[in-house]
Design a binder for these strands. Structure first.
Length: 241
DNA sequence: TGCTTGATTGTCT
DNA sequence: GACAATCAAGCAG
């Protein structure tokens, strides 16, 4: 498969502009175990320094947040609740500490690898769904967005959905952690993002408040979470419009 | 299907 | 010392 990856210029936009543009793109990790990837279906924008929900709120610049101040196109990976990691894409330019949290993807490459990493066993029923979804492609329609293809077929089995429908699950399935991957350059390293085959049309994008940031006061109400409308891999905590 | 709760550690006050 | 951009188990219905 041809490697194409988003260039630096793509990431150098204001985070609220960049976040929805990442929907339908493919997050890829070429690890020593093999390659795994998923289509991005849910994101959240964190707009430092004015955004109280952002780790860079108030311009707070610490060892942890330092990478948020880097040029667009770097990876910001942090640990949460002592047990999970969250993967973010640094947005905008050097000195502008903005980032996009990847909340959910739909598995594309390496589903067996992801299942193993997640400790989930996939049976025949699940794999049948998989073949239907990715196997035979051509239905005679004009080229369409792969990410929207999920809306046209039967809802995926729970075991497959559970692989990557949440930010901590995405990191586990793609084997991403803070120690090895924080600060990676998405334009050069083994973690990168392929552009959407076809951009997701505006009417297929839903938006609403971000998840689990009650501490952020009025900022918690900003509709800065974006997802592919009705997509089955969007995280459970707020699938509704 | 939906709610409640405990796990566990880096980070900042 | 408090708490967090989460997850999964357990239980009720």
């Amino acid at each position: 498969m041809m490697e194409s990856r988003l260039p630096r210029s793509f990431y150098r936009r204001p985070v609220l502009e960049l976040a929805p543009m990442l929907l339908g793109a493919e997050l890829v990790h070429e690890s020593p175990d093999g390659t795994a990837s998923g289509l991005i279906v849910e994101v959240e924008a964190y707009k430092g320094p004015e955004d109280r929900a952002a780790h860079s709120y108030g311009g707070r610049r610490t060892e942890r947040t330092e990478i948020m101040f880097a040029d667009g196109g770097h990876a910001y990976v942090f640990q949460i609740y002592g047990v999970h990691y969250c993967f973010n894409v640094v947005a905008a330019r050097l000195g502008e500490p903005e980032a996009v949290l990847i909340r959910a993807v739909e598995p594309v490459l390496g589903i067996d690898l992801m299942a193993r990493r997640r400790g989930i066993v996939l049976g025949d029923k699940e794999l049948d769904w998989w073949r239907l979804r990715w196997g035979s492609g051509g239905t005679g329609h004009p080229p369409r967005s792969p990410v929207l293809g999920a809306l046209e077929i039967k809802r995926p089995p729970a075991a497959i959905r559970r692989l990557t429908d949440g930010p901590g699950k995405v990191c586990r399935a793609l084997d991403i952690d803070r120690h090895r991957h924080n600060g990676l350059d998405l334009t050069r390293d083994k973690i990168y993002i392929r552009p959407p085959a076809v951009p997701v049309p505006p009417q297929a994008i839903a938006r609403g408040p971000r998840v689990n940031i009650d501490y952020a006061g009025p900022w918690a109400d900003k509709p800065w979470r974006f997802w592919v409308r009705d997509h089955p891999f969007v995280s459970v905590s707020g699938r509704r419009t």
